[in-house]
Simulated scan of single mutants.
Amino acid sequence: MANKTILELENIPLGESVAKNGTDQKKEFELALQCVEPNEKAHFMKWWAAFQDLVTWEDFKKKGYQHLSNIVEEVHEHILKAQGKPEQLKLAFMPKEIARTSPFFPMKRADMSNRPLYKDFVIENRWGTITVSGPKLSINDESVLLAVLFLAKKHRTERFETDYNEICGIMGVSRGTTQYTAIAEGLERLASSIVNTKLYETENLEKREIARSITGAILSNVDQTPKSTKVSVFLNPYFLALYGANMTTGLNLDKRAKLKGDVAKALYRFLETHSGGGVPFGLITLCNAVNLNTDQPKAEIRKVVRKSLAELQKQGNIKRWKIDKKDLVHIFK
């Protein structure tokens, strides 16, 4: 009987209350606690008191007995020790898989009004593959996502309410009807795009063995009211699993907002996942990593990459760079 109770408890879906009243909850808790291993009881009591309506006990265990609120606090404190005071940083933590193998494309403004609708569109580079079903996602959509990730960190939960005014402030863009519409449409695209990420085992690139596979919509739910700037966002819990696995890359949103070019922003995100010790990237490999169109003359590709690297250097994001005669791109951070 006791085993059945704890099994049922571990399979409680997100948001479902464990008990309908205090008496029943106390009995349920006492019965369930008897089935928990002695070394897990303190963690179980923590979960029961604070997180039972947000995550199952089984998932809480898988994430190292932590929830987003704990994890973000620890990561934030670690970065603050290395980089400065809290008020000096505006950080969003993006899963490293998405930072290296990204579904976001540099797009011309004219192309954004007529986006293709993908069905199992595959993006591949040396770090992995992403299969996208849904509308083509732009670097501006990535900016909206980073604002959402920042707010998830701020509110310490995957479900929160905000408004377009606040999102504009985080993105570092001017406020107004046009920008609000762009944000609303970006949130809709993020909720309607299904992304299947497969990360390769990077130590054995020749065999291309898959080390990790994650599938889901980036946003689980977006609730927007017409003629209102308020919005309710529910971030997909699979992003939180990446937090728990310590698979995130910290992006400074203030630094990113100063970059004007989409390719420069994409390179900034990608380079933040690397130490930047000068190990060269092949020109086409680097372009594929940031989804830059390679179906154009090499001279034009070099021109775009040089312009973007020069912008990163001017803003202090990299120290120096060069593209040698073999089209190897050397970047020093």
Results as ranks from 00 to 15, higher is better:
Gln296His: 03
Ser138Pro: 03
Tyr268Lys: 04
Gly15His: 07
Gly176Pro: 01
Phe104Ile: 02
Ile183Val: 05
Asp295Leu: 06
Asn39His: 15
Tyr243Arg: 05
Arg306Met: 11
Glu16His: 07
Ser192Lys: 12
Lys314Ala: 15
Ile194Trp: 06
Phe121Lys: 15
Lys90Glu: 11
Gly244Ser: 14
Gly134Asp: 06
Val144Ile: 13
Glu73Val: 04
Lys27Cys: 03
Lys81Ala: 07
Gly244Trp: 02
Asn293Leu: 08
Lys26Pro: 00
Leu259Ser: 02
Gly316Cys: 03
Asn317Trp: 06
Asn11Trp: 07
Arg115Phe: 02
Glu10Leu: 08
Asp324Phe: 11
Ala19Glu: 09
Lys265Ile: 04
Ser174Leu: 09
Ile214His: 08
Pro106Ile: 08
Thr202Leu: 13
Lys303Phe: 11
Thr157His: 07
Thr162Trp: 09
Ser174Gln: 08
Lys81Glu: 13
Phe29Arg: 14
Leu14Tyr: 09
Val132Gly: 01
Leu33Phe: 14
His76Thr: 13
Ile218Asp: 02
Trp127Thr: 10
Val75Ser: 03
Tyr200Pro: 05
Glu161Ile: 01
Glu185Phe: 11
Asn114Trp: 01
Ala310Gly: 09
Phe60Ser: 07
Lys260Gly: 10
Arg269Ile: 14
Arg208Ile: 05
Gly186His: 05
Thr178His: 10
Gly278Phe: 11
Ser143Lys: 04
Cys287Ser: 12
Leu292Thr: 00
Ser232Pro: 00
Thr131Gly: 01
Asp223Thr: 08
Ile167Arg: 01
Gly15Leu: 06
Ala245Val: 00
Ala264Cys: 06
Glu142Phe: 10
Lys26Tyr: 12
Leu68Trp: 09
Gly316Tyr: 07
